[in-house]
């Protein structure tokens, strides 16, 4: 058996070890808790041949490996966050033993406690807005070229109109995104805009103009979804997609927000 380390998924407060029974971490290893000062680290053993410095450098470049580790990481963080306040860690935080984990829990105790206070009883929800660029209204500026116009000139005019139309729709998309984000942020505890995603990874159609994330009180989720639905009906050309609750990846940060 090669050397093992402890992969740390999340910091929790008040997680019952029984909640982890029947669930597994990376490579099917059992999940367990390392406790210190009223906080717990959710960990599982990993092979250091795979998760040591050498191994990580190699494996992080392998999208298949990355996908498997990332989805497991997310599933464990999700499991914990459904039970108790949970601060998910960034991918691939590995310790050599439980003593190291406890030392780090002690070091970060106050900052982690503040982060957990911030997200307790709240969930992270994402709202994405898509516009179908081709479905934008044709501006009145585009006119049929007059008959006496030469073919070359008509072609150039047509191209210019198409460019203007694209620019107008991009501008309209940006304004729409800002408006929707502001409306959603108004009713939530914290909010942030993430970079729009590329459709080659997501497979979405249309253009993603908003990739927003929002910290929502558990009691406010229904109202938040209603608001999304209302915004969708007010803006028939935009498609809204709401996802969540996520483990609070964005809002359980250790730095003050």
């Amino acid at each position: 058996m090669s050397e093992t380390g402890l992969y740390c998924y999340a910091i929790t407060r008040g997680l019952d070890p029984a909640a982890l029974e029947g669930s597994a971490g990376i490579a099917g290893a059992p999940l367990r808790l390392v406790e210190h000062g009223g906080l717990e680290a959710v960990v599982s053993e990993v092979d250091l041949a795979e998760f040591g410095e050498e191994g990580l450098r190699r494996n992080l470049e392998d999208l298949g490996w990355l996908e498997s580790v990332a989805t497991t990481h997310d599933a464990v963080a999700r499991l914990a966050s459904e039970q108790v306040p949970t601060a998910p860690l960034r991918l691939a935080t590995v310790f050599l033993g439980a003593d190291s984990v406890r030392a780090r829990l002690g070091e970060w105790h106050d900052a982690a406690s503040r982060a957990l206070d911030r997200i307790e009883g709240r969930g992270e929800w994402s709202v994405k807005a898509y516009v179908d660029v081709d479905a934008q209204e044709t501006p009145a500026a585009e006119q049929e070229p007059a008959e006496e116009m030469g073919a070359g000139r008509a072609y150039l005019l047509k191209r210019r109109a198409a460019t203007q139309r694209r620019e107008a729709s991009a501008q309209a998309g940006a304004e729409l995104a800002e408006e929707i984000h502001a409306a959603l942020a108004g009713g939530t505890v914290l909010s942030r805009r993430l970079a729009p995603q590329d459709r080659r990874l997501t497979g979405h159609t249309g253009e993603m103009v908003l990739n927003g994330t929002y910290l929502v009180d558990a009691s406010g989720v229904a109202a938040f979804k209603d608001l999304v639905a209302r915004l969708a009906s007010e803006h028939p050309r935009v498609r809204l997609e709401v996802g969540g609750p996520w483990p609070p990846y964005t809002f359980a940060s250790l730095d003050p927000q």
């Binding site: 691939a92 780090r104 982690a112 997609e241």
Partner: peptide, 26 residues
């Protein structure tokens, strides 16, 4: 759309809290 990899990666690589582990990732 299923929960896509882009959603998960953008969060686990970029948003989770950073605590230095014993294994230093370059």
């Amino acid at each position: 759309q299923p929960a896509n990899l882009a959603d998960i990666l953008e969060r686990v690589l970029d948003k989770g809290i950073v605590i230095a582990g014993d294994i230093k990732v370059n």
